[in-house]
């Protein structure tokens, strides 16, 4: 399904696009307006200490627009600037957007987070860590007031560390095959625990552990998108109206969902073993399926259909 209004943007790879290209392509044409745009030069005062260049948006674009004529608030991380990391300014921009959604019921009730981030920016580690904590709290508070927060994961930097926790705090997660998410990245685990624990050079292994298909099969993401702007738009529109509320019922269901996952899959040594345990007949083929065939497999899985996040 493509939108004739912006054909060129529709087929563009989400993975390869910049944050601004993703926003322009995702939202209805001409609907995007940015808050604290680069002309206001809200940039990191800390990077110069490390002889690193700053950016006028600090790698975080926030604003509002329309998606399928529906008003939305949006935030997009630029994975090609400092790995899309959470830092003092970039984090505070997202915190401000989420608090606005929380406090002003006349603002759009949907927030889209286009995550593309390796986590906390180490040059501003404490400010970044705290920004993630503030973001997580603001997401929960906004959700408590009926705001739906949707994470879109499919960029080069994935969603790791604080970004992985942020994604899982949202009402919904949409992921593509190229999307990767987790806490410690493969390189970090290899550096700390050795190559026998996690060989970060083994691309197939990394794909099977952190990649979007494994996340979707286990229920670690709620929707699977093709790696195009149109793919993400369609996936978001398909789930935008059925987000779980933030309450005790939802979190008890999530507790069951996560406990069931350990019970069912906790003894598995590889992703393929997990997919066998999930009842997938030909787990070796998961990697080679096209997106449509993969979507058919997901339909048959219980764990991927829980309404609990």
């Amino acid at each position: 399904m493509t939108d004739p209004k912006h054909p060129s943007a529709d087929t563009a790879s989400w993975f390869l696009s910049t944050a601004r290209e993703r926003l322009t392509g995702l939202l209805d044409p001409g609907s995007f307006a940015e808050f604290l745009p680069p002309t206001e030069r809200a940039q990191s005062p800390h990077l110069a200490l490390f002889d690193l260049p700053a950016a006028f948006d600090d790698g975080m674009v926030v604003g509002r627009g329309r998606l399928g004529r529906r008003a939305v608030l949006v935030a997009a991380q630029e994975g090609q600037f400092m790995g899309g990391t959470f830092a003092e300014v970039s984090g505070a921009k997202l915190v401000g957007l989420l608090r606005a959604a929380r406090d002003d019921p006349k603002l759009p009730r949907i927030v889209l987070l286009l995550l593309d981030s390796g986590g906390v920016r180490l040059q501003e580690a404490n400010a970044g860590e705290l920004a993630v904590a503030e973001v997580m709290r603001a997401i929960v508070e906004a959700r408590g007031f009926g705001v739906t927060v949707i994470a879109l994961v499919g960029g080069r930097a994935g969603a790791f560390g604080g970004a992985g926790l942020t994604a899982a705090t949202c009402s919904r997660i949409v992921i593509s095959e190229q999307g990767r998410t987790g806490v410690s990245g493969p390189e970090v685990i290899e550096t700390n625990k050795g190559v026998e624990e996690f060989d970060s050079q083994d691309k197939a292994l990394v794909w099977s552990v952190t990649g979007g298909r494994n996340r979707r099969l286990l229920g670690g993401a709620d929707a699977y998108a093709g790696d195009t702007v149109a793919g993400f738009r369609d996936a978001v529109l398909a789930l935008i109206d059925r987000a779980p509320p933030f309450d005790l019922v939802t979190l008890r269901a999530e507790q069951r969902r996560l406990a069931d996952r350990i019970e069912c899959l906790g003894a598995c040594n590889s992703a393929v073993e997990m997919w066998v345990a999930l009842g997938i007949a030909e787990p070796q083929t998961i990697r080679n399926l096209d997106d449509a065939a993969f979507a058919e497999i997901v339909k048959g899985l219980r764990g991927a259909a829980y309404e609990a996040r």
Binding site: A159, T169, S184, N214, L251, E254, I262
Partner: peptide, 13 residues
């Protein structure tokens, strides 16, 4: 990580 540690940590938060 394979089992989704980010979801577990976020769940506790």
């Amino acid at each position: 990580e394979m089992l989704g540690l980010n979801e577990y940590l976020a769940h506790l938060a």
